[in-house]
Design a protein around this nucleic acid. Structure first.
Length: 210
DNA sequence: GCGACAG
DNA sequence: ATCTTGTCGC
């Protein structure tokens, strides 16, 4: 996509100084084929205590195509983002940051729109290569691009289970992303709190509960 | 042309 | 992502 190649040049990577105060987690569920339910949860850092959340139902027009996820879920996120009164210091997305074929996954793309540091936490690999990951909780190996540059990390947050793939989105670098994600991960849970809670809420809301 | 392929 | 109960493993 031409849009991605153009926007990619605007991405900024730098160390995240200090610690965030309020972080957000984003995720979507699909009540029907043409309707998406986006949820943005605000959590206190590093306690990971849930502060509040907002949700928004949106018409889905774009299909899911690997590498173009932002065009399907981005609009829904932005609508929910507008309803958010208090803006977080950092946002965690369910998907890739720069660990993407064109270097701009949904976390990076949305980061450019909101101008706030973003990190991508994916449950599977889309792009990048890495050495074998030890089967021990907490193990991690760098994820590299075709030139050998480190673009993120593969982390075994839970023993004997699929790892997670993290990469910076925008306004943060690889090492800072790794450090912060580590602090948001609870022992025994595979997915870091922001995205994990957002996922629970998105599905619970879909079922009409809560 | 053949495979890979976030959610 | 979604369709779906019980069930194997840590």
């Amino acid at each position: 996509m031409k849009i991605q190649k153009t926007l990619k040049r605007r991405l900024i990577f730098k160390p995240y100084e200090g610690d965030p105060n309020v972080v957000a987690g984003v995720d979507l569920s699909f009540p029907s084929r043409e309707e998406g339910l986006a949820v943005i949860v605000l959590l206190e850092y590093p306690s990971m205590k849930v502060l509040r959340y907002v949700s928004e139902r949106v018409k889905i027009r774009f299909p899911y195509i690997p590498g173009l996820l932002v065009f399907r879920e981005g609009p829904a996120f932005l609508k929910a983002w507008e309803k958010l009164q208090v803006k977080p210091d950092l946002v965690v997305f369910d998907g890739q940051g720069i660990a993407h074929p064109r270097g701009i996954g949904i976390a990076s793309h949305m980061g450019l729109f909101i101008s706030i540091p973003t990190i991508g936490v994916a449950k599977s690999r889309l792009y990048g290569w890495h050495e074998e990951l030890p089967n021990e909780e907490g193990a991690s190996v760098p994820l590299k691009d075709k030139f050998g540059n480190t673009i993120g990390y593969v982390i075994r947050t839970k023993k004997s289970g699929k790892p997670i793939y993290i990469s910076p989105g925008h306004l943060i670098d690889v090492e800072s992303s790794y450090r912060i994600i580590k602090h948001m991960t609870v022992p025994g849970k595979r997915i870091p709190e922001p995205t994990r809670i957002a996922d629970i809420l998105t599905k619970k809301l879909k079922k009409g509960l809560f």
